[in-house]
Nucleic acid binder design. Structure first.
Lengths: 250, 250
DNA sequence: CGCGTCATTGAAATACTTCAACGACCGTGG
DNA sequence: CCACGGTCGTTGAAGTATTTCAATGACGCG
């Protein structure tokens, strides 16, 4: 017997996510049609141009939203993390594919459910609006990054966002040391597609940061950040690397 | 005596804009506190980091949303055109400056008004949600453009969007000819900031399109597009200019 | 162990930027 | 009316960041 409460109990979407905006009876209604599903990395949740039949919240893992150009080039136009949702209620066909970047857990339910809920509950509408507005802000940050940053700055900025995301989740305990271990949610190829670079450039810039002892690279998905301040400086710096090099010389 | 109806009567926001979502009594309430205001090009409607005290809909002209990097570099992260609104209801400080790119007419009213209206009217909420979701889609298109296109493709894509925007507004009459006259909403510097290029590169790419007889340039804000298909091809093409050159050779 | 995928590294090519000079346009003031 | 200065756009030449092409190395899996 699956009681709605039990499935939602230890859900990351419960507090900050969509479900936090629901009243108990609404939550129960949602819980009744909800399915938690797990997918492996690479799984296509919905493809560009399709009308997604379902709507879902991400429980764990990272989903990349990507568009592709006729020539085969692709660009990741956004990342969705736990608490984010996939799909546009009342929208038509998706304008980007949603693909699992790692193994993911999803809270999955029919499109009609979310649309019904949104039609009736003003809290749900409010939540959706705020969420989309936040996503728009993030997209605009990214436009800035893609349009005006050098490869070095892009990599530094990317590492900073991973760092921030990871800090937000873990306890204060792990933060005391200057060194921080981070887990990259993306492969080199995906980082390249995210930052609008080639995989080689990504690799070289990471190598440079390693040579400068700002980071250490373990296996390709993990690294240790020794000097977050330097990364910050690189992002801020006008002439790439200028202030950053000074900061390192200490 | 300013009657609410009269001020809203020939308003571009009436049909497709926010006001189209309002009931008559809501419209009347809005009309009572609304002011139409005109600003010259360059006027700052609200600056990055400020909490905008007002909310407004654009009646005519183009507003650029821009962010700046500490080094002085700037990037236009979006354009707002007639029917679009400025400001995020329930949001805090603006994360981008809104600056008039041309002379603009605004329908201006206090922040509290739109927030009150949105709290009460579900139609207003719906409209806001749809609008932000559309903006997000456009932002994602732009991410694709900035991350994966060459300078030539960026310019072609920009001209195509101007062309599309202009076509949407004017009558069918003017479209019969292959040649289309377009009015650029931005200066070269602004185009550069929009496309993430330098002004020189913009100028050179426009020159190349002119040499190839795809366009003619009149004064710097107007041009004639002779071969929209070539522009389209350039955007689609894998190796920039390859298919486009063939298309031109005819 | 060998194979395939993913990451790294090097050398050459190139797209874009930077620096610098010049030309066109426009309003101002002589 | 024309000369003047300012802004904006164009063009050229040199420099540089990033890409492209190509080869090698590391890791995981059957």
């Amino acid at each position: 017997m699956r009681k709605p409460r039990s499935i939602c109990a230890e859900c990351p979407a419960l507090e900050k996510g969509l479900c936090g905006a629901l009243r108990d009876d609404e939550l129960a209604r949602l819980g009744a049609v909800t399915r938690h599903r797990t997918f492996p990395a690479g799984h296509v949740i919905h493809a560009e141009g399709e009308v997604p039949p379902s709507f879902c919240a991400i429980l764990s893992g990272v989903v990349k939203l990507m568009k592709s150009l006729p020539n085969g080039n692709q660009q990741i136009v956004g990342l969705a993390r736990p608490g984010d949702f996939l799909g546009r209620p009342f929208g038509g066909e998706a304008r980007a594919s949603a693909v699992a970047a790692s193994e993911i857990k999803l809270c999955w339910f029919p499109r009609a459910t979310i649309e019904g809920l949104a039609s009736e509950s003003t809290a749900v509408k409010d939540w959706l609006f705020e969420h989309v507005a936040d996503e728009l802000e993030r997209a605009q940050e990214w436009i800035m990054l893609l349009g005006r940053m050098t490869a070095e700055q892009k990599i530094a900025a990317f590492l900073m966002t991973v760092l921030r995301d990871q800090r937000a989740q873990q306890t204060d305990a792990a933060r005391t040391s200057g060194d921080v271990i981070i887990e990259l949610p993306l492969s080199r190829t995906e980082i390249a597609d995210y930052l609008g670079l080639t995989i080689e450039t990504v690799s070289r810039q990471i190598a440079r940061l390693r040579e400068r002892k700002v980071i250490s690279v373990g296996n390709s998905r993990t690294m240790v950040v020794h000097h977050p301040e330097v990364l910050e400086d690189v992002v801020e710096s006008a002439l790439p690397g200028e202030r950053a090099k000074e900061a390192l010389r200490v």
